[in-house]
Lab assay of single mutants.
Amino acid sequence: MSRVPSPPPPAEMSSGPVAESWCYTQIKVVKFSYMWTINNFSFCREEMGEVIKSSTFSSGANDKLKWCLRVNPKGLDEESKDYLSLYLLLVSCPKSEVRAKFKFSILNAKGEETKAMESQRAYRFVQGKDWGFKKFIRRDFLLDEANGLLPDDKLTLFCEVSVVQDSVNISGQNTMNMVKVPECRLADELGGLWENSRFTDCCLCVAGQEFQAHKAILAARSPVFSAMFEHEMEESKKNRVEINDVEPEVFKEMMCFIYTGKAPNLDKMADDLLAAADKYALERLKVMCEDALCSNLSVENAAEILILADLHSADQLKTQAVDFINYHASDVLETSGWKSMVVSHPHLVAEAYRSLASAQCPFLGPPRKRLKQS
C-alpha cells in the first residue's frame, strides 16, 4: 500500500486566492494483479454453464480479502454459449462490502496482453458476489490457432484489481511565511564533478583513453575500487588504474551511474553493462540491467540471455529466462542460440529441462510459493 502523499503547497495549487485553511483528501486504492494459466484448455468440458475456478489470491499475505477468477468455457447461458465468460469473485471478506475495479486480458504466445476488457467503474462486491463479462471473447476466435491465444493449448488470463480503501483527510492552515525547501541536487552536482573533471585525484585508463576521477567517490560506490585504493596496490601508489576489459562507451555509462545513480543509455548496452556491474560489484546497476534484459526477452535471444545471466550470477534474470524458455519451449528449441547452448553450456540445458519437467508435473513435489530491489 502506498504512503499517503503530503498535500501540495497551496501557493502551487492555483494562481488564484489562497485560503486560510485547507483539506486534502486521499482515497486510498490498493492495486494488484494475478495470472492464471489453464493447461490443455481444449479438453475443458463443453457443457453450457460449466465452471472452472482459479485458486484464491489477494494483494498480499496480510490481506484478508480473498478473490478468485471464474471461467465458463462455453458461456454462462444460452445467450453467451458462443463466448467464454469471465468473472472476478470475492471469496471471503471481513467487511460487509468492498468496491473494486478490474481489468481482464489474455496473454498471447509472446506474453503480450490482448483482448483487454475492464470495468468502467468500481463495482460493489459482497462475499460470494462476482462481476465480469458474460461475453468476454468469442470461442471461435479464441480457438483459432492463427490468433495465437492458446500457445501449446494453454489459456493464460491476466487480471488487474484495484480495491478502494478508506479515504484519509489531511488538513492544515496557511501561513504568510511559507518556506520552500529546494530539491536535493546531489546527483546532478556529483555528475558535474565527473563531467568537468574537477578536483580529480586519479586516472582511469580504458582502451587508450584516459578519464579523470575521484578516488573517494569510486571507493564509496564500488567495493572493488575501494579494495584497489585501500591496500598497497599499484593503483593506490600511482593513482592510476588500467581497465582492459570494458569498452570506453560502456565504461562511461558505468561511471555515470557511479556518480549519479542513473544510467540513461542502459537499454542500448544492458548486456555489456551487466558484465561491468558484476565485475565492479555495483549491485543496483546489475539489477537494473537484469530488468532491462528481462523486458527484451524473446524467442530468438532467450538462450543467449540465459548464458549471460549464468555467467554473471544474475539470479533474477536467470529465473526469468528459464521461465520464458519453459513457456515458449517449442519455439526456443528451434533457435540457433539454443542449439549452440546445447554444445557450449549443457548444464544450462539440463537446468531448463528440470524446470520444465517440474512445471508440467506438479505432483512430483509440493507447490512452490512464489514470493528486491534495493
Rank of each mutant, 00 (worst) to 15 (best):
A146I: 09
Y327R: 07
A187R: 02
V161W: 15
T260E: 08
E20C: 09
V18F: 03
N169I: 02
Q373V: 15
A220G: 08
E230W: 13
W131D: 00
E183A: 01
T156D: 11
V241I: 04
R124N: 15
S85G: 10
L186E: 08
S344C: 13
F104Q: 02
S6L: 02
A329H: 01
L186I: 07
G261R: 02
A220K: 07
D272P: 03
K28A: 12
S298F: 04
K101N: 13
S21R: 11
D278Q: 08
K81N: 08
L218E: 01
S14V: 03
P367A: 13
E189H: 05
K95E: 08
M35N: 08
Q212H: 14
P73S: 06
E145D: 07
Q360F: 08
Q373F: 13
S197W: 15
G365W: 12
V181L: 04
P346Q: 11
V163F: 13
L142I: 11
D82G: 01
Y83Q: 11
T156Q: 13
D77T: 07
S85R: 03
A219H: 15
E112H: 10
A100H: 01
D144W: 04
G365C: 14
V299Q: 10
T114K: 01
N108H: 15
L86F: 14
M255E: 08
R138F: 12
S236L: 07
V299L: 05
F158H: 14
G75P: 02
K101Q: 09
K372V: 06
V250M: 02
T200I: 06
D153V: 10
P346Y: 11
F125G: 03
Q212K: 12
A352P: 06
E78M: 13
V322S: 04
G132P: 00
V51P: 13
Q320M: 03
K64R: 03
M48D: 03
R124L: 06
S197Y: 10
G111M: 07
I106A: 11
E145V: 07
L142G: 07
N296M: 11
A329C: 12
Q26H: 09
S55E: 13
Y353T: 00
L356K: 00
P10R: 10
A275M: 02
S85I: 00
W131S: 00
A350I: 06
M48V: 01
D271A: 07
I243G: 03
A277K: 00
I258G: 09
E300C: 08
E247V: 04
Y327N: 10
R124W: 13
L317V: 03
K115I: 15
T114L: 02
V98K: 15
Q373H: 10
A219E: 09
F43M: 05
S197L: 13
V349R: 00
P7A: 06
Q212W: 13
N108M: 14
D323I: 06
P223T: 12
C294N: 08
S96I: 10
D152F: 06
D323F: 13
N265I: 01
A220N: 15
W22T: 00
G192M: 09
E112P: 14
C256L: 10
G148S: 01
I258E: 03
C93V: 05
S42W: 07
V161A: 06
M288H: 06
Q209L: 05
E47Q: 03
Q120T: 14
L371T: 14
S295P: 06
T37A: 10
G365E: 14
H347K: 04
C202I: 15
D267R: 07
A357P: 09
L155I: 09
S42C: 07
P223Y: 12
S54M: 00
E234G: 10
S92R: 06
K286H: 06
N39H: 06
A116R: 09
F199Q: 15
H231E: 15
S6E: 11
D63F: 01
T319L: 10
T200K: 01
L88P: 01
E20D: 08
G60I: 12
C294I: 12
S80K: 09
I38R: 13
E12V: 05
G172S: 03
S59Y: 12
A277C: 02
N108V: 12
A309I: 00
C361Y: 07
I243Y: 10
S55N: 10
N326V: 01
S42L: 03
V98W: 07
V168L: 02
I217P: 10
S15W: 11
V181T: 06
A350V: 05
R354K: 12
C289W: 00
T335E: 13
N40G: 11
E210W: 13
P73Q: 08
V71E: 11
N62M: 11
D201Y: 01
A146K: 07
L86S: 12
S374N: 15
S6Q: 10
Y87F: 08
F229K: 13
V91Q: 13
G49F: 07
P73L: 02
A314L: 04
S162L: 01
Q120F: 10
S21A: 10
V342T: 08
E112C: 11
F229Q: 11
A207V: 10
L306V: 08
S14M: 02
C23S: 13
M178K: 01
F125L: 00
L69Q: 14
P10Q: 11
S330Q: 13
R368V: 06
L193P: 02
V179I: 04
Q26G: 06
G75D: 00
A277G: 05
V322Y: 11
L266I: 06
W131T: 00
D291M: 06
A220T: 06
H345C: 08
D323Q: 15
L218G: 00
F43R: 13
E113C: 11
G365A: 14
N72G: 11
I307F: 02
E247W: 09
V71I: 04
Q212C: 15
T25V: 05
N244S: 05
D166R: 07
R45T: 04
D245T: 09
A357G: 11
V91G: 12
F102S: 01
D82V: 12
L88M: 06
H312L: 04
S167N: 03
M228T: 11
V246A: 01
K268D: 09
I307P: 00
D323V: 05
A187H: 04
Y327T: 05
N177F: 04
E195Q: 02
N177A: 07
L204K: 00
S313W: 12
N244K: 03
F136W: 06
G191E: 08
T200F: 15
M178R: 03
S295G: 05
C294P: 02
H231K: 12
A146M: 07
L149P: 12
L150Q: 10
F141T: 07
D140N: 08
L107I: 05
